[in-house]
């Protein structure tokens, strides 16, 4: 996917350019819908989540600026977080994790860091596979299925603290593997 093309479209959407919004939808909706479907696993819910996602994109495009975060990462993050918020919405006291654009208030990555981030990202899948099997599964479960520490502790039949320790070790191992 052409990064500068998407960046351009987002910049125009920030100026409330409707034609650009239309084009951005045509360009990225299939990927974002795939992500929503993967998380929610139900078509109707995924359709609603994607509609919400694009409303957020329309409203918050001015908070995205080309500062090192890849435009697809930004768009996918909104779709994934919106979907997970929907998935968790039934739970009492749930606090939404999604605040589109929030992560971009502070200066983002400089170009050099962006290159490093991209190359580390390319190693994610391989590195997840090198983790102890359950740790890799837990990290995937958190990211793609919105599982919380409590959900994961249930699933793996371990106490909550053990789960936290486990997963944090997994994250540290993951970071080491990716940065090699």
């Amino acid at each position: 996917m052409d990064r500068s093309e998407i960046e351009n479209l987002i910049a125009r959407v920030a100026l409330k350019d409707r034609a650009a919004f239309d084009q951005l939808y045509d360009r990225v909706s299939a990927k974002l819908f795939g992500v929503c479907l993967r998380v929610l696993n139900k078509r109707a819910a995924a359709e609603d989540a994607m509609q919400d996602t694009f409303v957020k994109i329309w409203k918050n495009a001015d908070r995205y600026s080309a500062n090192g975060l890849s435009p697809m990462t930004w768009l996918i993050t909104i779709a994934r977080n919106t979907s997970i918020d929907r998935l968790r919405a039934r739970k009492k006291g749930h606090q939404d994790i999604d605040t589109p654009g929030f992560e971009l208030i502070a200066p983002g990555l400089n170009p050099e860091q962006a290159v490093v981030a991209a190359s580390e990202a390319s190693r994610l899948s391989g590195c997840l596979d090198t983790l102890e099997e359950d740790r890799g599964k837990a990290i995937r479960g958190a990211y793609l299925d919105g599982e919380t520490y409590a959900d994961l502790a249930d699933r793996f039949g371990v106490p909550l603290n053990t789960m936290r320790t486990w997963l944090r070790r997994g994250l540290i191992a993951l970071r080491e593997c990716m940065s090699q």
Binding site: K31, V35, R38, L104, Q113, E120, L124, Y143
Partner: peptide, 11 residues
Amino acid sequence: VFWQERLTAMT
């Protein structure tokens, strides 16, 4: 942001 970039690769 760095983690976001890394973990989005899961998609």
